[in-house]
Design a protein around this nucleic acid. Structure first.
Length: 773
RNA sequence: GGACGGUUAGCUCAGCUGGCUAGAGCGCGUCGCUUACAUCGACGAGGCCGUAGGUUCGAGUCCUACACCGUCCACCA
């Protein structure tokens, strides 16, 4: 038996063992209720960060618990490896730019790069002891998934849920692609608020704007209908300075009279309000921007300038009425931080705004943990204003299975048997009046990752859909959770899962968000190599779903201490259990007491886990193990074990049950050390090749004399206190203790107290003093 | 502007449907190397439970305002 614990060696050993033995392999034949987990496929865009280890660790504890309660756990593992995030990584890794390469070149570079980094990427998840079946593996760019994604998209197309339309699109000029509403982020930016005068028949009209370079795209001026300053101008024309176009002055309630001058120009398109006005007032379209964020021919002499340059030039060419420095928030693309523009382009949309009520109903039906995240989902759905723009003007993604006829603009859909199809390299199934050209777009990655329940269902014969659980972090409720639910509604008219658990974020020691630029990032890889994955997981198990966790080196330490305690308690127990075979036997009172405590703990533990409160479950075990078992019980039985008196086998049996129960209850949290100890002794009697494959013990009855023994424990604590107060070392023998007569009902347990605390004699007295020598 | 969460010992948090003389761990102080463990053990100090009202025999616990912190959504001309 080893004395010292080398966690690095041990963790390595068990990772290999689990893999070799297929411990976490899904067995469709296994009995037990199927518990299927829609495990988030992490985006290959770097290595696993601490937030990943946190949320994946949390869900893994649930998975491990479900397995040990007897469920047949279906727990696949996928990677999301297409789309912008992966493209950015490939650009960085290879020091290239996508737009400098041909489409096919870039795609094969992506494939090659992924091949190289994917195994190492997945290894991070194995290192935190995710108990997934890694052979149930999928990649969202694999041809199998491409085929599925295209198939489901064609389904939507055939059901009239897909349209291809020209219209204002949220556009990232850096990534040069359309993006969805959900991909926007706010950013504070310094800016200048300019007041510019337009000419009208009635004289000057001053408008206020932060974007004077958009003057060439100005199509109207808006004022509030009840604004006395401008009432007389409503319906009249105004002339845009420099560009000289005549635009109508229109009234609209949306205008804020307090802001700027109370008159605002509408450009197609400056912002979301402009789009609303564009549709509501049937305004003309006058685009002045190109796809890479420069001014186009519509901007006359400013053509070719970037937005910033043009702004400067326009401002110097104008008579500015006034300027004011302001801070305001702009919408940026969350992937790159670039300010977005709205430009008219042709895009693919999935029509779903009409299903909002249904999405709300399903959101209500889903079980949320914690519950309050439902509200966030509901608010998001209520606030939806755009259909889902699913086309991206990028290379590395799943192509749209379509061609377009240059003559009549007819869309030609790929045959199902052709899928997966890349319209660039394959022929369309039919010809048309004009040249038939491939659709150049790729699908939004969320359109594919929204199909993970279907993807993982395709990996097994066993019915796993609708799934039991969707675990994920709160930042993608509006993306992944919502989109998956939306697709499930559209394709199957039902919820994709029964329940969703939502994880919070990990903050730094000061409670701030971690970010590379702030340099306050904690690497899970480092934590694992310093302390081991068990310690990391122990820390993770200290907070609940939905809660933010503040990183703390001190808290990490308490995990270290707990593991050490477990290790040492096992050293003691196993040294006495050597040669002992468990069996049913009548127990002594203190042995019944600890088993009773164990049963109580098991009951609480299961209740907490059934409520998805793993952290309370863990605390229940902590209390049992540290206080009841180590603090009291082991001390109580030492003399019996060392001196072979008063039925030591009874003590061994209780110790067997307590330690094994403890290990099993700890196993979902700290799989390595529990496995190590299990293999040292218990495996011989438990038979299962790995502790995660064993079942949690059934909790037995609460011992009727438990509370009397609790009193005995209290008396011992009083005697310890007395010794402390008198500065008597704990190990020193005491010849006599005198207890108050009130404790006389405990006298049949007096031997336990005497043996545990090394007291020669205990007698009772009428006096009020509870303890005296 | 709307919504959601949080505010309890120096720190991190427990306190369910109201009964608490308010708990735990860490940290702190004193003592102790007692044959599993000093990564330990024993004992102790430390809180008017964000503020102000209200309901109640009784309120961290329920209600109403407000404040501060965090997050999401909207606005952002």
């Amino acid at each position: 038996m080893q004395k010292e614990r080398d966690f690095k060696k041990q963790e390595q050993k068990w990772k290999e063992y689990w893999e070799k033995e297929g411990v976490y392999r899904f067995d469709p034949q296994k009995e037990g209720e199927v518990y299927s987990i829609d495990n988030p496929p992490p985006t290959i865009s770097g290595r696993m960060h601490i937030g990943h280890s946190y949320s994946f660790g949390q869900q893994d504890m649930i998975a491990r618990y479900r397995r040990m309660r007897g469920d047949n756990v279906f727990y696949p593992f996928g990677t999301d490896d297409n789309g912008l995030a992966t493209e950015k990584l490939v650009e960085k890794e290879n020091n290239v730019r996508m737009f400098d390469m041909s489409r096919s070149e870039f795609i094969s570079l992506c494939q090659d790069t992924l091949k190289k980094i994917r195994p190492e990427f997945i290894q991070d998840w194995k290192d935190i002891a995710m108990s997934c079946d890694f052979s149930l593996n999928y990649s969202t760019i694999s041809s199998h998934v491409q085929e599925m994604s295209q198939n489901y998209f064609i389904d939507l197309y055939e059901n009239g849920r897909v349209y291809h339309k020209d219209g204002p699109t949220i556009w990232c000029p850096l990534c040069q692609t359309a993006i969805a509403q959900a991909e926007l982020e706010d950013k504070e930016k310094e800016s200048v608020f300019y007041e510019i005068e337009f000419k009208t028949e009635e004289g000057g009209l001053t408008i206020a704007t932060t974007r004077p370079e958009l003057l060439p795209a100005c199509v109207s001026v808006f004022v509030h209908p009840s604004d006395d300053r401008y009432k007389k101008l409503i319906g009249k024309k105004a002339t845009v300075p420099i560009f000289e176009q005549q635009v109508e002055i229109i009234a609209d309630e949306e205008v804020d009279m307090e802001k700027g001058t109370g008159a605002v120009m509408c450009c197609t398109f400056g912002d979301v309000t402009d789009i609303e006005w564009f549709y509501a007032h049937k305004l003309p379209l006058r685009n002045c921007l190109t796809k890479d964020g420069k001014l186009n021919e519509g901007a006359g002499k400013y053509e070719g300038l970037s937005v910033e340059e043009a702004r400067e030039r326009v401002v110097s060419d104008l008579d500015i009425v006034s300027r004011k420095e302001i801070e305001h928030t702009i919408n940026v693309h969350e992937r790159c931080g670039t300010g977005v523009e709205i430009i008219p382009t042709k895009q693919w949309f999935i029509k779903y705004l009409d299903l909002r009520e249904e999405f709300l109903r399903l959101g209500e039906e889903l079980l949320w943990i914690p519950e309050h995240f439902k509200t966030r989902y509901m608010n998001w759905v209520k606030g939806l204003r755009w259909d889902w723009c699913v086309s991206r003007q990028r290379y590395f993604g799943i192509p749209f299975p379509f061609w377009h006829c240059s003559g009549c603009e007819k869309k030609i859909v790929a045959e199902r048997s052709q899928l997966p199809v890349d319209p660039f390299s394959e022929k369309p199934p039919e010809s048309c009046c004009g040249e038939v050209l491939p659709d150049e777009n790729v699908l939004d990655t969320w359109a594919t990752s929204a199909l993970t329940p279907q993807i993982v269902q395709s990996l097994t014969e066993k019915k796993v859909f609708p799934m039991s659980l969707r675990p994920q972090a709160h930042d993608i409720i509006n993306f992944w959770l919502f989109y998956t639910l939306a697709r499930s509604k559209m394709h199957f008219d039902k919820l994709p899962w029964e329940r969703a658990t939502i994880s919070g974020f990990v903050l730094d020691e000061k409670g701030k968000k971690m970010s590379k630029s702030k340099g306050n990032v904690v690497d899970p890889q480092k934590v694992i190599s310093n302390y081991g994955a068990d310690v990391l997981r122990y820390w993770i198990s200290g907070t609940k779903f939905g809660e933010e966790a503040r990183w703390s080196e001190k808290e990490i330490n308490s995990g270290k201490r707990t593991l050490n305690k477990i290790w040492n308690a096992a050293r003691f127990s196993l040294s006495h259990l050597e040669g002992y075979s468990p069996s049913e036997r009548p127990l002594e009172v203190e042995d019944k007491w600890i088993v009773s405590k164990l049963n109580r703990t098991l009951k609480q533990y299961k209740e907490h886990f059934e409520n998805y409160d793993y952290s309370k479950a863990r605390k229940a075990v902590d209390h049992f193990f540290w206080d009841d078992f180590c603090g009291n019980y082991i001390e109580m039985i030492k003399s019996r074990l060392y001196d072979q008196k008063r039925n030591p086998d009874s003590a061994k049996q209780a110790m067997y049950d307590s330690l094994l129960g403890t290990l099993k209850m700890y196993a979902p949290f700290i799989p390595f050390i529990t496995e190590e100890i299990y293999h040292e002794y218990f495996i011989e009697f438990e038979k299962e090749k790995s502790i995660p494959l064993t079942l949690l013990p059934k909790e037995g009855d609460i011992f009727t004399e438990e509370s009397l023994m609790d009193e005995v424990v209290e008396v011992m604590s009083l005697i310890r206190k007395y010794k402390t107060e008198k500065s008597i070392p704990m190990g020193q023998r005491i010849s006599e203790i005198v207890l108050s007569k009130e404790k006389e009902h405990l006298k049949e347990y007096i031997e336990i107290i005497k043996d545990t605390l090394r007291i020669d004699n205990i007698r009772f007295t009428e006096s009020e003093t509870e303890v005296q020598i």
